[in-house]
Simulated assay, not measured.
Amino acid sequence: MLTANMTIIYVPNVVKSADFYAALFDLKPVELSPTFAMFIFNGGFKLGIWSKYTVEPAAQQLPFSPNGELVFKTETKADVDFLYNEWGTFREVTIIQTPVKMDFGYTFSAIDPDGHRLRVCYLDLDGE
Rank of each mutant, 00 (worst) to 15 (best):
Y106S: 03
V30N: 09
P57D: 04
N85L: 12
Y106V: 02
D126L: 05
L118G: 13
V55H: 09
R91L: 05
T3P: 04
L125C: 06
F20T: 14
D79C: 06
L118W: 03
F108Y: 03
Y10D: 15
L70T: 06
V15W: 08
V100K: 06
Y106F: 04
F72S: 07
E92G: 02
V55E: 14
N5I: 09
K52G: 15
S65T: 15
A58S: 08
N42I: 04
M1F: 06
Y84W: 01
N67V: 10
Y10V: 14
L118N: 10
L32Y: 00
A23V: 00
Y122M: 05
M1I: 13
T54Q: 12
E56C: 10
D81I: 05
R119L: 07
L118V: 13
G44C: 13
A23L: 01
V14R: 11
D124N: 08
A59N: 09
T107M: 02
Q60R: 10
F20C: 15
K77C: 04
F90I: 04
V71F: 03
F20A: 15
S65C: 15
V71G: 12
Q97W: 00
L62D: 10
P57R: 04
T54V: 13
G105A: 11
I49K: 03
P113R: 05
D124C: 08
F20G: 11
I40Y: 02
D19I: 10
G43L: 06
R91K: 06
Y106A: 01
P57Q: 03
N67L: 08
P12Q: 15
N85V: 07
E69M: 11
T7P: 11
K46H: 13
I49Q: 04
K16G: 12
P34H: 06
I9R: 05
A59T: 10
V71Y: 09
A58Y: 01
E128A: 10
F72H: 08
K28I: 09
T74A: 07
L70Y: 00
G43F: 06
F25A: 10
C121F: 00
A78T: 14
T35C: 12
A110N: 02
T89G: 00
M38S: 06
F39W: 09
F82I: 09
F104E: 00
G44V: 05
M38Q: 08
P113C: 09
M1S: 14
K101H: 04
T89R: 09
K73P: 12
V55N: 09
K77H: 04
T107I: 03
L125F: 05
D19K: 11
Y53L: 15
K73Y: 05
G115K: 09
E86L: 08
L24K: 03
F41L: 07
T7D: 03
L24S: 00
T76A: 05
T98D: 12
F25S: 08
D19Q: 12
G105F: 04
M102T: 03
L2V: 06
Y53C: 13
N5W: 00
F108I: 02
P29K: 03
R117P: 02
R91P: 06
W87E: 01
A58C: 03
M102E: 07
V30I: 10
R91H: 00
L70C: 05
V55Y: 11
P66D: 14
N13S: 13
P34K: 15
P99F: 01
D112S: 13
E69K: 15
R117K: 12
